[in-house]
């Protein structure tokens, strides 16, 4: 499971629905795997505004990954200006500018770093979701639905 996915995942229990502590789920005994993926700049441009930075910081720290800055980087710092405003004014097709280091780092963290196995624990109810071979088991016994 990609770190990106974990940034959107909540506890499945109804009782945890509106509880702030039910997000993010906390990885425990996690075994990580790096799975190479092609850089998808336009996807990151689309999805990054939706990423909860504070939750990402918490999770990366819990996983023992290099710590992130306190606040989310500005889009201008992530995406080279040539592919935004400048390209719109220039009539030529923009040459693909080299991705910034920041963009590559975010790509690596969000889309290439995955949880291969372990548990995801809800901070509100304590329910543990098992992850095996990258697949998280979110089936709930019917009394917990």
């Amino acid at each position: 499971m990609k770190i990106l996915t974990l940034n959107f995942l909540t506890c499945a229990r109804k009782a945890c629905k509106a509880e702030p502590a039910a997000f993010p789920l906390h990885p425990r005994d996690a075994e990580l795997e790096i799975v190479e993926a092609e850089l998808n700049t336009e996807f990151l441009r689309n999805v990054l505004p939706r990423v909860e930075w504070e939750a990402l910081r918490v999770v990366t720290e819990e996983l023992g990954l290099p710590s992130l800055p306190n606040v989310a980087p500005e889009p201008d710092a992530i995406f080279p200006a040539a592919s935004t405003a400048a390209a719109a004014t220039a009539n030529e097709t923009p040459a693909n500018p080299a991705p910034t280091q920041l963009l590559q780092d975010l790509h690596h963290l969000l889309l290439e770093t995955t949880i291969l196995s372990g548990k995801l624990v809800c901070g509100n109810c304590g329910h543990e979701y098992a992850v095996k071979e990258g697949i998280a088991n979110f089936l709930l016994p019917s009394h917990l639905v």
Partner: peptide, 18 residues
């Protein structure tokens, strides 16, 4: 894609606007 073993009849465990 990332895979989840889950029953859609129990809900969709992602935060709003995902």
């Amino acid at each position: 894609g990332d895979l989840f073993l889950a029953d859609a009849g129990q809900g969709v465990p992602f935060r709003p606007g995902t």
